[in-house]
Design a protein around this nucleic acid. Structure first.
Lengths: 156, 156
DNA sequence: AACTTTTTTAGAATAAAATTTGGTAATTAA
DNA sequence: TTAATTACCAAATTTTATTCTAAAAAAGTT
């Protein structure tokens, strides 16, 4: 397998990011190849891990997930496996959809989806603040999201 | 069009979030219906906007996007259309893949992808800090991401 | 409770797309 | 230059999506 991707591969990645359900036929026409080698390239991109997976994007608000927040978490590093303890706990909370280890005042940035304020309170009271290594946390409620590209900016 | 979704619809949403390229045949087997009504339900979910779109998820690191950050931005509200000015500028920056209007000390939280530190510096110097209404900003570099569900937590 | 209307479904037929196959041109390595 | 590898296309085959029809189920009405 060639290590490098060529322009055609980048085009494929761009198109599949934009429309994950484009047919192989259409895709082949867009990139200027016939269906067979197009499919072969897509399979290679999947096998080699450049394409990790495919997902439907749903409308969260329509589904009643009214509250979206980011939570900045600061940890208490008394124990030497503080981070692992935190991650083990956080990974079990289904409302937490993202968990990033970051630089700056906070140690972690979490993204959280809940139905309403009551659910948010329960999440904070019963789950986040119960994690032993959590020192402090600050909530950023998302009032609106004006940009959310499901697409990563690629060259070419 | 019925306003409410039933259990079968939620199952479909869950499965399509997990695998956006599942065939209609497989999907129908998973939810226990025949292909025809399954497809009809999927189309309804698409038409009514519960499903917004489909996307391939790519491996950012393999593609050379080595730097991912969140930037907290505080605005200077001297003008009365401060927010609109900010949004207009930010929407033109392709490295900014997310833009959230949030509560707390910061006004906006941005997610940014760049190739390397040099690119990051250019982004900051030439773009972010050039926006007239930006008062201050703070960077959180993402060192690692331990959880990133492309899936929204649904009931049922 | 019987009837009507509406909705949902399965199954068959058709259309479209994916996938495989075989062979050829182009590129790379020896 | 030759051999080997790779990438490609065109056509055949298989699989899947889609449409259509009619039956069943559910909901509402008299």
């Amino acid at each position: 397998m060639a290590a490098e991707l060529d322009k055609t591969d980048f085009k494929i990645l761009k198109l599949l990011q934009e429309n994950g359900r484009i047919t192989n036929l259409l895709l082949s026409q867009e990139i200027g190849l016939s269906p067979a080698p197009t499919l072969e390239r897509v399979r290679k991109l999947e096998m080699s891990g450049y394409i990790k997976s495919y997902h439907a994007l749903v409308d969260e608000e329509k589904l009643g997930l009214g509250i979206k927040t980011f939570i900045q978490v600061q940890l208490d590093f008394h124990k030497n496996n503080t981070i692992q303890i935190f991650l083990d706990e956080v990974n079990q909370i289904k409302e937490v959809t993202e968990c990033h280890h970051v630089t700056g005042q906070a140690d972690f940035l979490l993204k959280v989806y809940v139905n309403d304020i009551k659910s948010y309170e329960r999440l904070i009271m019963d789950k986040i603040s119960k994690i032993s290594v959590v020192k402090t946390f600050q909530t950023m409620m998302i009032m609106s999201t004006t940009k959310k590209e499901p697409i990563v900016p690629l060259e070419y």
